[in-house]
Design a protein around this nucleic acid. Structure first.
Lengths: 344, 344
DNA sequence: CTGAAAGCGCTAACAT
DNA sequence: ATGTTAGCGCTTTCAG
């Protein structure tokens, strides 16, 4: 059927071993024969058979990524970083979208149990405990992105640090009555962002009514959604409390909903209320949101690099790095009231 | 190392052939031995080695998808359909993000590299001509999604039909001065949507000033972006023409920009201007956009089904199906002025 | 019905 | 330096 190293060997009058050697750039081949083989290979339009290689090498050069099925911009951008990096390394990426914890298990099983992939990246999903012991013992290359487990490599966002910066920014702008529209507390990022928000206010000696904080109770996407932001702000407004002069919102996507709610009530941003959110997804700049930027693309790159290192050094100590988000100032916080639409 | 069919065979006192047979549900095995083998396999926690299977079967059970790197909601939703369907079929999906035409070629080459994948899905990108002859002759399983080539299967959106419905809807609402904010005409969908818009008006005997039509000249994403919509509307407003009572916008994402521009000029939607756009991406409902819904998830499903059929019947005639978008009426067209935020 | 054996295409250890 | 050979783990004839 298709051309194999046997065809090349015959045509070039060498053994298949030699062919394999030149194809793998291994030493000990005369430049003369090397060139002959290469010429023939090119002439025959030879393409190595990936699976045969994988089988013989016991290495597949492909990774898998398990991501939440309800994908949002965060994953997309991180994935782009992953994909780009992988592709320069000659690796392939298999994607698995998980709907629930059980599926995570299935995919983990499917990916790892056997030669299928060299390693897997788990995104924003909890690692099921029943895999921990086995994976740790077998030293399965697993890196967690935006999630954590002490026994595996992970890459995280410093939610606490980010929330602190956001809150301090609002404080520095003179705001003293601040509110927070948060996602569902069942998600760790939501908990961490809230805790730091509280702590930062407290350290600044600022007290706010407990009613200024609205936590989402939505299940979908853990409340990191536009609807959730809209409802959260509406709920706050329904409480009849004095409207704070500023809000910290736990994600850009929610902030967009918050903006809609505010507009409906004719409350202007940033004149009446300043907004700072979190993530800096693609959309954020279009809404002129001041937000905490997470270097998503970079996180993807780093995830891959860690993975490669892990594959090459299975016994290296596990490491966890967290990215500290940076403040991106746009119009929504009022620090810069100019409407800047076309920012790069 | 890990458990193979040899281990099972030994343990169950049968030959590896028999083990393989029961594992593949092939006939001609006594229920007795079958059960014995299954028991042992389970006990040993056996997992088939995908690559070895692929090598022996000459079939990998994995597909690849080449998508534009600047991914938007459209792809994400289609991909979810692809992924979900594939996963129920036991297939894996390899993702390649292409930045340019040349990369499409590289990935095409890499994917098709013998046996790597059983077929590839090409999304919204033109199939490089230099692959056509070879792929067609070798009957490489290739299905095009949201793009087209006469020699390969494809799944498309009926842009013409959709634009017609959108325009007729506006007409039926009584609008006679209508405008269009379009994407970059270098993209086929933009051209098709514009042509049908024109034709529908003409057939209805409605004439509009040429200046009512604004085509984007942006490169990024072919002008299917929020910025592009914003600028398009601003440009129109700068022309000094009477403002139409309705606009057809070539995508939801642009419509969001259009909305922003209109708001800035204090032009109300839908009271002053009605808007109908195209796509019905996730965000559309949050902006209460009346739009033409493309069944993206379904398109993904169908793409996979077509692919499987193509793999099984390499000689079947090529087919191309186009999905006719359906009108989703929300608040932005004024047909239903009620603010509906929480629609499912 | 089932065991044995021949590949699938490639790598790597072993000869020469 | 290069040819030969033994697998990698599984499927699939081919005998029996």
């Amino acid at each position: 059927m298709s051309v194999t190293i046997y065809d090349i060997a015959r045509e070039a009058n060498v053994g298949i071993g030699t062919v394999s050697r030149v194809l793998n750039n291994s030493a000990n081949v005369t430049t003369e024969t090397r060139e002959r083989v290469i010429t023939v290979a090119r002439k025959l339009n030879y393409q190595p058979h990936a699976f045969a290689q994988a089988l013989a090498r016991k290495r597949s050069n492909t990774l898998s990524a398990i991501i939440p099925f309800f994908t949002n911009y965060f994953f997309i951008e991180v994935l782009q970083g992953v994909q780009e990096t992988l592709s320069t390394l000659g690796y392939d990426l298999i994607i698995h979208g998980a709907n629930n914890q059980q599926q995570v298990g299935e995919y983990l099983q499917r990916s790892m149990r056997k030669g299928r992939v060299d390693g897997t990246l788990l995104f924003s999903l909890e690692l099921p405990e029943n895999f921990v012991a086995e994976f740790a013992q077998k030293k399965v290359p697993l890196v967690l992105v935006d999630t954590f487990h002490p026994q595996f490599d992970s890459i995280r966002v410093d939610n606490a640090g980010g929330a602190t910066i956001a809150t301090e920014h609002l404080l520095s702008l003179g705001h003293r009555n601040i509110g927070m529209i948060n996602a569902n507390l069942q998600s760790a990022p939501a908990r961490e962002r809230l805790a730091s928000f509280r702590q930062t206010l407290q350290q600044a000696g600022v007290t706010i009514p407990e009613g200024n904080i609205v936590n989402s109770d939505e299940q979908k996407n853990d409340g990191f959604s536009r609807e959730s932001g809209f409802r959260g702000m509406m709920e706050f407004l329904g409480r009849g409390l004095p409207v704070p002069t500023a809000f910290f919102v736990s994600s850009d996507i929610q902030a967009i909903g918050v903006l809609a709610a505010l507009r409906e009530r004719n409350i202007r941003v940033p004149e009446d209320v300043a907004i700072v959110s979190f993530d800096d997804v693609e959309l954020a700049k279009n809404f002129d949101l001041t937000t905490m930027r997470q270097p998503m693309f970079k996180m993807g790159e780093l995830a891959v690099k860690k993975m490669i290192e892990r594959i090459e050094h299975p016994d290296a100590p596990v490491s966890s790095v967290s990215f500290k988000p940076g403040l991106v100032i746009r119009a929504s916080c009022g620090a810069n009231k100019q409407y800047v639409f076309h920012e790069q």
